[in-house]
Amino acid sequence: MYEYLTLNYTQQQQKDLIEQWYQHLDEVFTQTPKEYFVQHHENDPSRQQNVIFIATDLSTKKIVSTVKLFTREMFINGDKCKVAGIGEVSTKPEHRGQGLSSKLLEMAHQYLTNNGYMLSFLFSNKYSAMYHSKGWSYVHRDITVEDVNEKIVPESDGHSLLLERMDTIDSTTLESYFQILVEQKPIDQQQGSIVRSIQYWKEWIIHNVEPHSKGTIGWVAKDSSTNTIVGHIITSLYGENSDTMAVKDLGSIHNKTQQNTCIKTLIKLTIRQYQTCLLNNQSIKYVQYPSPLLITSVLGGEQTHKLDKSMMVRLCASNNNSVPSSSTTCESLFPLDSVIYWDIDKL
């Protein structure tokens, strides 16, 4: 027999209970260190609105299954809409096959519907068929993969930008730049992108790059004439030989006419940093970024497109002006040619 509970922020402050939840996640996700979940929870800027659903075994009083809601705002049709990400879906092996996750997922969906959320979203590859059967729809993201057609990207490309690692910049300077991004949002108002407050930048973004998150590097671009930050890029390497640079986030405070040039320069400079400083001249063969970001190539290399099929969405309420009618589908809300959900925002 099981008991199902909904934990609000006040209940999450109970030290014994939250520690038991951390321990549960550590036991289920054996390849992920417990500290990851602690940081994931405590550095979430929306933690006071986040909700955790748990199932406990009545015989042992132990947590055996959980689902967590991460509350967010998302740009949909130009409006800021109340949404929630789903994460920490976990059931202990000996309690699987009894519908515990399904029950908790439905509790979460009902909670969101009752509280005026527009939709929920999640990311999954291995269990996407299960989520699809429970009501979540696939939202494909178009990713451009471009060949890096030069072994070393030229140091000088007619620009005046200097690239520095984000973790070497003092917090006051970074916060001033983040504040400009929050006020201007030059790139981020793309369909499906997360609305970022200054608190979100300081807590979520910063804690998802080095030194807090190994392998994901944040960079800032400074104007060499003024020494002010004018853009940033967050990247990581992946692939069998770590030869693909993935752009996980990118921003610029330039106006639209200058934005494309700045974006391309940021990507080029970052490739050069990897190849000359971080990889001992090992070659970066490919760079990938969301296709709606640019309409022309970065390096002039051959381009291919791939579909990222890991994102899934389920509508909760249709009383928002951004949703035309109850017949609106997730696919129509997130057209392939305009969706940018940055990987740095993944739950």
Score class of each variant (00 low, 15 high):
residue 234 I to P: 03
residue 289 Y to L: 10
residue 164 E to H: 14
residue 208 N to M: 00
residue 176 S to Y: 04
residue 213 S to C: 03
residue 197 S to G: 12
residue 264 K to T: 06
residue 258 Q to I: 09
residue 218 G to R: 01
residue 236 S to Q: 03
residue 240 E to G: 10
residue 166 M to T: 01
residue 184 Q to K: 15
residue 180 I to C: 09
residue 201 W to I: 01
residue 220 V to H: 01
residue 231 G to M: 11
residue 191 Q to R: 06
residue 279 L to W: 06
residue 170 D to I: 10
residue 193 S to R: 08
residue 237 L to Q: 11
residue 208 N to P: 01
residue 214 K to N: 11
residue 256 K to E: 14
residue 229 I to N: 05
residue 221 A to D: 03
residue 218 G to D: 01
residue 210 E to H: 00
residue 284 I to G: 07
residue 186 P to I: 07
residue 221 A to F: 02
residue 176 S to H: 09
residue 200 Y to Q: 02
residue 224 S to L: 12
residue 288 Q to N: 15
residue 236 S to H: 00
residue 199 Q to W: 04
residue 157 D to C: 09
residue 243 D to C: 06
residue 198 I to H: 06
residue 252 S to E: 04
residue 249 D to Q: 07
residue 271 I to P: 05
residue 235 T to S: 10
residue 198 I to K: 13
residue 214 K to A: 12
residue 225 S to G: 05
residue 235 T to V: 13
residue 238 Y to G: 03
residue 213 S to E: 04
residue 203 E to F: 07
residue 270 T to S: 10
residue 236 S to P: 00
residue 250 L to F: 10
residue 290 P to G: 04
residue 215 G to R: 09
residue 254 H to P: 03
residue 204 W to G: 02
residue 179 Q to P: 06
residue 229 I to W: 04
residue 182 V to I: 11
residue 227 N to G: 08
residue 266 L to V: 09
residue 186 P to F: 05
residue 175 E to P: 04
residue 167 D to G: 01
residue 246 A to P: 02
residue 196 R to V: 04
residue 250 L to P: 08
residue 282 Q to F: 08
residue 195 V to I: 04
residue 262 C to R: 07
residue 157 D to A: 11
residue 163 L to Q: 02
residue 282 Q to G: 13
residue 187 I to V: 13
residue 284 I to P: 07
residue 191 Q to L: 04
residue 286 Y to T: 15
